[in-house]
């Protein structure tokens, strides 16, 4: 009984993760400029990756593999904002103008 419920939860987790990954890649194609696309890439890195990893953790049971999966999740969580910020910062510096309105004084 417990086995079946863990299996079902892990399948749900995979489905949710894959949904976020597919939505993120659609957004990466569809959104208008590089700043908006960073949001879609951030979605792949946070929700997509963590739900797929959660599904694998539930599948693997409790072992060293679980700890390594948790480490991958934490690592992706820590590096995703850094690459996002560096990309956005450099795009601003090199003069890529964002689509949409700017409010108030910007740097």
């Amino acid at each position: 009984m417990l086995d079946i419920s863990i299996e079902i939860i892990s399948i749900i987790s995979f489905v949710v993760g894959v949904f976020f990954i597919l939505t993120g890649s659609i957004g990466l194609i569809r959104l208008p400029d590089v700043f908006s696309r960073i949001h879609a890439a951030g979605m792949i890195d946070t929700a997509g990756a963590s739900f797929v990893i959660l599904g694998m953790i539930l599948q693997s049971g409790f072992s060293l593999i679980t700890a390594k999966l948790v480490f991958i999740g934490i690592f992706i969580f820590f590096t995703s904002p850094i690459t996002g910020h560096v990309t956005a910062n450099l795009a601003r510096k090199k003069g890529v103008n964002p689509v949409g309105k700017t409010k108030g004084k910007t740097l």
Partner: peptide, 17 residues
């Protein structure tokens, strides 16, 4: 919310400080 915005094409980006 971001997934909803991407799928419903309702983005209106803005820049502020």
């Amino acid at each position: 919310t971001t997934a909803k915005v991407i799928l419903s094409k309702s983005e209106e980006p803005e820049l502020f400080s």
